[in-house]
């Protein structure tokens, strides 16, 4: 039994001033295609028949009440759920034309192309410099020290952290403030040059000022990366996301252009949630 693919109002094509159609090439620059995805924790089903297309170089926000499966879905995209022994998945998650759950798929390779930023900042017990340089060096993205320095600087600049830390690169990553730590984690993620960055409520543990900084950052980063973020803050979704998907009890209730969704939600449940009737 396959659920209906959620309707999406495509973005406006600037050339003709009309929305793209499903057949336009630009719309087929899909980053991720999900079909009939089901997931169980032991015997409890957490995701039910998910179908969704996620677009390249956009910010997609996943919203919904807590326990609705949005974080679980996010972790399906880079197979972090593999770490939980009781999890069982069925269905298709396709990235760059490949089924990520296929036996042949190397989850380490997958995670290199699909980076992740977590809810709580989790810098490694290393220096700020090493936090960023570690992964690119392991992945052979840099060969010389100068190249490595350059990459670290670029990643830190892209993460908007360079000016704050350029004089203390050798200090431990844990010495930074919470917001800075989270940006360090973002720098760490973009240093390996992934295609997709998953963000699991990246600002929920931060103060409002750090949150604003990171929101600005996401807006810049979407020029280079496909960003999929989980948030339980609807204002945040409205501010930063190009597309928004509303999850409820493991199902996608509605998926649309953010502006459309927040102005004219198609589903009653979405409207109730957005207007704060529950959540």
């Amino acid at each position: 039994m396959s659920a209906q693919m959620p309707d999406v109002t495509y973005k406006t094509n600037p050339d003709i001033g009309q929305p793209y159609t499903r057949n336009d090439k630009a719309c087929h620059d899909l980053s991720i295609r999900v079909r009939d995805l089901n997931l169980w924790y032991g015997k409890t089903q957490a995701l039910k028949d998910l179908n969704i297309d996620l677009f390249q170089k956009n910010v997609t926000a996943l919203i919904g009440p807590s326990g609705c499966g949005k974080s679980t879905f996010l972790r399906c995209l880079n197979r972090m759920n593999d770490l939980i022994p009781s999890v069982h998945t069925e269905g298709l998650v396709e990235i760059d034309g490949r089924d990520v759950n296929a036996a042949k798929m190397d989850e380490v390779a997958l995670r290199r192309r699909v980076g992740m930023v977590f809810q709580k900042p989790n810098p490694f017990p290393k220096s700020i410099y090493e936090n960023v340089a570690y992964a690119p060096r392991m992945h052979d993205l840099v060969s010389r020290k100068a190249e490595q320095d350059e990459l670290v600087e670029k990643a830190l600049r892209d993460a908007g952290l360079w000016n704050e830390v350029k004089d203390k690169l050798q200090e431990p990553g844990t010495s930074l403030s919470g917001g800075q730590q989270q940006r360090l984690c973002i720098a760490r993620a973009i240093a390996v040059q992934p295609d997709v960055i998953l963000m699991d409520e990246p600002t929920s543990a931060l103060d409002p000022i750090s949150t604003a900084t990171i929101e600005d950052l996401m807006d810049k980063l979407k020029e280079q990366f496909t960003i999929i973020t989980v948030t339980h803050n609807m204002q945040q979704a409205a501010r930063i996301a190009d597309y928004t998907a509303f999850f409820h009890l493991g199902e996608i209730i509605e998926y649309n252009d953010t502006k459309v969704m927040f102005s004219t939600p198609a589903q009653k449940k979405t409207e109730d949630y957005i207007s704060g009737r529950y959540g």
Binding site: D96, R98, M105, D106, V108, A109, L110, R112, R113, M138, H139, D140, Q193, P194, D195
Partner: peptide
């Protein structure tokens, strides 16, 4: 452009 999955998997063999 980024490496494809296959290329990365190839590089990963030794590390695995």
């Amino acid at each position: 452009m980024n490496d494809s999955f296959d290329q990365i998997s190839q590089q990963l063999k030794g590390r695995h």
